[in-house]
Nucleic acid binder design. Structure first.
Length: 127
RNA sequence: GACGCAAAACGUUCUAUCGCUAUCCCGAUUUGUCGGGAGGGAGGAAAGUCCGGGCAACGCAGAGCAUCCUGCUUCCUAACCGGAAGGCGCCGACAGCCGGCGACAGCCAGUGCCACAGAAAAUAUACCGCCCCAACUUGUUGGGGUAAGGGUGAAAACGUGAGGUAAGAGCUCACGGCGAUUACGGGCGACCGUAGUGGCGGUAAACCUCAGGAGUUGAAAAACCAAAUAGGUCCCGGAAGUGGAGUGGCUCGCUCCCGUAUAACGAUUUAUCGUAUCGCCGGGAUGGGUAGGUUGCUAAAGCCUGUCAGCAAUGGCAGGCGCAGAUUAAUGAUAGAAGUCGCUUAAGCGAUACAGAACCCGGCUUACAGAUUUGCUGCUGAU
RNA sequence: CGGGAUGUAGCGUAGCCCGGUAUCGCGCCAGCAUGGGGUGCUGGAGGUCGUAGGUUCAAAUCCUGCCAUCCCGA
């Protein structure tokens, strides 16, 4: 299912605060992933948010482009690499994916790294 | 014809697959939503946040002062540090034309400042020079007059000529320059022309004076909603752990004593006692706050066409259109084709900008590949 | 979204209000002193005053537009 609805996004302010306060994180250049097991009742096995720092990318156009590419790559690959594993173990998590690269990455690169990132995330969650 | 300048208007398109967002319709539904379909979904600057408004909350007798802003005139506008037309000045080697630019009120209100150089930088404090007087050692000294000449400077006491004088000086006269003011004429007005009068360094993006204007805070404003949690106030009802000791690092717990309504402890009230009230538990009511949701939220000082008024900005009338509304934040990703421009004989290759709504408008400023139209010229060629 | 401050030599700063000469410390270079180094003493170099215009005889300073950095409110 290549969907990406509102319920799959992380919008709750309290949850975001918890995530950044007590979540565990790892690096998969050019992304920094922070995740936390969630007890909240939600339809989908994961809620995600994307972030691009304003400090590195001054122009709103560039930030939007990066977020759109990352979101698109996540949307196309989450079912295969993340949801299947999560539903298998019955876990539910919240994720934040921050972009820490300095250059404006093309879609091919973003897609490749996103797949690697999701696989690595599954490994972390399974521990 | 090229370049440049100015103004106006534009600023990619189509197809396929997979998605996002709000609206409407149909169906299902456990009333939470789910499925299908339809036609919508970034800009000329959405940007910078530099001005002006709408809208909202709060405040508000009137006047003055302070602070800040604006500054030729007349119009336009909801309003404006905006726009139009005009006046004046400057620039384009140039009289005019044409184009561009102008914080363009007032140094004849007052105060301040004008480095260095120079005699002197503003009521002329006289270096050289010129002139007069005095003294004597006859070419010097002292006293006085003088801003015409020298040199300095960004700027030198309005400029040139004549009269005048011991020598000189707007001291006087003629012509000319500047700005002030009075009268007349033209213009709605800024201002222009003519004549007269008194005058003559610059600087107000120096203090300031004059005239006009400004209440404060911003959609995270503001209004509303019903659950959960903590707690405030009020009302009703209830009655027992709320006292002491031990154990224990502390809390909880456990054990013992006391008490269970005429009780005990603490606080308030009172000179004191008594009485009364509060504390504890349960229920109810009520207002405020936090996360969340809804409204605000997109129909607008709106756009297009025609016509009328006006030099124009703009306005009136008629007809038509219905044009993004997200909220950790949609408007996308991939592939292919076309268009435009550059290089190239062609094939082909490369480029396709600046940039992303956040309550909404009117401007200004800044960024911008390419490309269109109009106007102008001091350049070039031909006639 | 709204508000405020600051850009000066390699680094940190003064000067800006009230216009005319850009200061100080560390660092750098050269010399002296020492057997040599450090310390010390003496001398010197090094500046588009963030950027583009304007006002002025003259601008780091006054005015305007941009750029960058930092801070504050929520």
């Amino acid at each position: 299912m290549y969907t990406f609805k509102k319920e799959e996004r992380l919008c709750n302010k309290v949850l975001i605060e918890q995530l950044f306060h007590s979540g565990s994180s790892f690096l998969c250049y050019p992304f920094r992933v922070t995740w936390l097991p969630s007890a909240a009742s939600q339809h989908f096995p994961a809620q995600v948010l994307f972030a691009v720092p304003k400090k590195r990318f001054k122009k709103a156009v560039d930030r939007n482009a990066i977020k759109r590419r990352a979101r698109e790559a996540y949307r196309l690959h989450k079912q295969q690499h993340l949801y299947n594993q999560l539903t298998g173990t019955g876990k539910k998590i919240i994720i934040s994916i921050g972009y820490i690269g300095k250059e404006l990455a093309g879609y091919e690169q973003v897609e490749k790294k996103m797949v690697k990132l999701l696989v690595q995330l599954c490994g972390e969650v399974a521990k």
